[in-house]
Nucleic acid binder design. Structure first.
Lengths: 358, 358
DNA sequence: TTGAAAGCGCTAACAC
DNA sequence: GTGTTAGCGCTTTCAA
């Protein structure tokens, strides 16, 4: 079952009756080989099942046509991003290998990139939440593109327009008539989180709505933090009628807390998330959210990296891609709620509570 | 910012005033170096930031201490498996690189494994649903371990005990008093799916319950198939009181269909899934399911592979790991439902079912 | 258009 | 203990 080994280029050359170099040129589609010989060599290589040894290629300083990716696999849309990147890479005749970044036990990014450097032609780093990453990467000897980091990155980077997305989310709520709108923040170590927070404050100001610090609760992008943040908000005397959560995961945490308190989404409180994770369209309620342009981010990052590899020494380029508001079930005009409240206050309880119960 | 290059072993040796080989031995922790020199060399290597070049190591036939993994990243618990495998690998001082298998555009597994062979010391393949995979892998020149494939694999493999898990799921429902239990199957090209189906039939037979083909609906592990399968089941004259879905994703699809029909889970129909995907404990209702021993599978597969790499030529070993029934909210005793039905039917009591309800 | 030689960074096998 | 030699599979350089 285990053949002795795969054929080497020398063996292919021998069978084809040419020198090593001619075979190399033919296979790498380089000039300097007569058409007949080239065809011959390619056929024989194929028959023999020849596969170029990338370790050997790399050693000589040549390209391996592999790109490396560093990513935290457990993060919700990482796999979508990776799938997209893989497709783009393959279309360019590149392979992609992923280094799975562990959550806690993290080794110096430096050494990971160094390992990938020995294999790949370039590296894309999908930055983790916890990020003292960039500093340690500074001396990479290989083209690097980062994703998910804002303008601060010293590397060429690709990111979603988090600020614009946050603005869309908030404007959507305001257009629905909401005035008391809360914000559940993400981990502010990430520029994406900071941009979303900034959008919240800016749009409130633009709309001349009062800014109430009690409505801005700290979170960390995780479900649990969304749950707890919502509990805090629900405990307020004058609780919000809408919540903008910094990401979908914490939005669903908030929804769970709202329901546990006997309230409904969007009946009592509208919720907007951010990211449009896959299950956002499947869970009940389907979540109104801001879609990250994952496919475009994947495409842009790979293309940028390939350009760097090709030697187009793009100066620290920052690509920012637009987001999209996706309106689903978790938001509703304030009007409905107003009416309901009025009904309750007027003592016409039966209708209102019947609705609430459902 | 870009230093010219990382130091090579020769350079370290030169600085340390020893020969290349002495440096190599010291760094690889091999015998044949005096303690003082060894310490010296290690210190200098560290100071110079030396990192062994794995491409070069691989070329000489030595170990790279990298394991390769082939996996479909979008499959629900793949990332958990990968996280676990990564942790185990790192604990053994191995790194792990993942090849993301595209969903459709698939290239010959052969060539993927061949690529990994040039980099890694061994490969773990998490088999995809669509699987004409194994044949094409047959000539791998490198240790290979497969996950998620049953006994048929020609390779050493690690798998969850799907049959036993299916039995637990069904017995749980029977113990709750259910007699009309439906099954929504998975993709039968996978042994895991076939084993779960077999468990369904066997336990029904063991419990002397009638087998009704109408209650066994084909699915493919996807949410949509669960949804549609449940719709078929709900359309039956005598619809089931419980459903065993071949995986959690299709179980949630079924739950969505049940709710859409105005029924409740578990009030009207109990549902058991399989896998215990992360959100199974977070969605409403929290899903009763069979937990795959992912951490153990991760551990076992890596350890098995490392053993093969170490030359312990384990004959095609098949490791089967036990699953665990996790009882949550989506299942409930039939009793409750029976009472409701009795009320509806205005007192048409059935002695036999009362006994069964226990 | 072709081929021979040198060497990428490392290790296994053999000297000393 | 230590160093020297050869070579892994390939590409780059240079010569024919």
């Amino acid at each position: 079952m285990m053949k002795r080994h795969y054929p080497t280029l020398a063996e292919v050359a021998k069978v084809a009756g040419v020198s090593l170099m001619t075979a190399s040129r033919a296979i790498n589609n380089r000039p300097g080989v007569s058409p007949e010989k080239r065809e011959d060599i390619l056929r024989i290589a194929d028959e023999m099942g020849y596969v170029a040894n990338r370790a050997a290629q790399k050693l000589t300083g040549a390209r391996t046509r592999i790109i490396g990716v560093v990513a935290e696999l457990h993060t919700p849309f990482t796999s979508d991003l990776l799938l997209g990147m893989g497709a783009v890479a393959r279309a360019a005749d590149y392979e992609m290998l992923v280094y799975s970044l562990p959550v806690c036990d993290r080794r110096p990014p430096h050494s990971i990139i160094e390992m990938l450097r020995q294999i790949a032609d370039g590296v894309i780093v999908i930055l983790p939440y916890e990020s003292d990453y960039l500093e340690s990467m500074a001396t990479a000897h290989i083209p690097v593109v980062t994703i998910e980091q804002g303008i601060e990155s010293a590397f060429p980077s690709v990111t979603a327009d988090n600020y614009q997305g946050g603005c869309s989310a908030l404007r959507h709520l305001i257009e629905l008539g909401h005035r008391r709108i809360a914000f559940i923040s993400g981990n502010d170590r990430l520029t994406s989180a900071r941009d979303r927070r900034r959008a919240y404050r800016d749009v409130l100001a633009q709309a001349r709505l009062p800014y109430d610090p009690a409505l801005e609760v700290d979170g960390d992008f995780l479900r649990k933090s969304g749950f707890e943040a919502a509990q805090k908000l629900l405990a307020l005397d004058d609780r919000p009628t809408a919540i903008f959560a910094a990401n979908d995961t914490s939005a669903y945490g908030a929804i769970a807390a709202i329901r546990e308190a006997g309230l409904s989404v969007p009946g009592d409180i509208s919720v907007v998330g951010f990211d449009d994770i896959p299950i956002a369209s499947q869970l009940h309620p389907q979540l109104t959210t801001i879609r990250q342009p994952l496919q475009q981010m994947a495409r842009a990052s790979v293309n940028l990296l390939l350009a760097l590899i090709a030697g187009l020494d793009a100066p620290s380029e920052q690509i920012v891609l637009p987001t999209q508001l996706i309106v689903r079930e978790s938001t509703t005009p304030l009007k409905a709620k107003r009416k309901k409240e009025e009904a309750v206050k007027m003592g016409v309880a039966s209708v209102g509570t019947a609705n609430l119960a459902r």
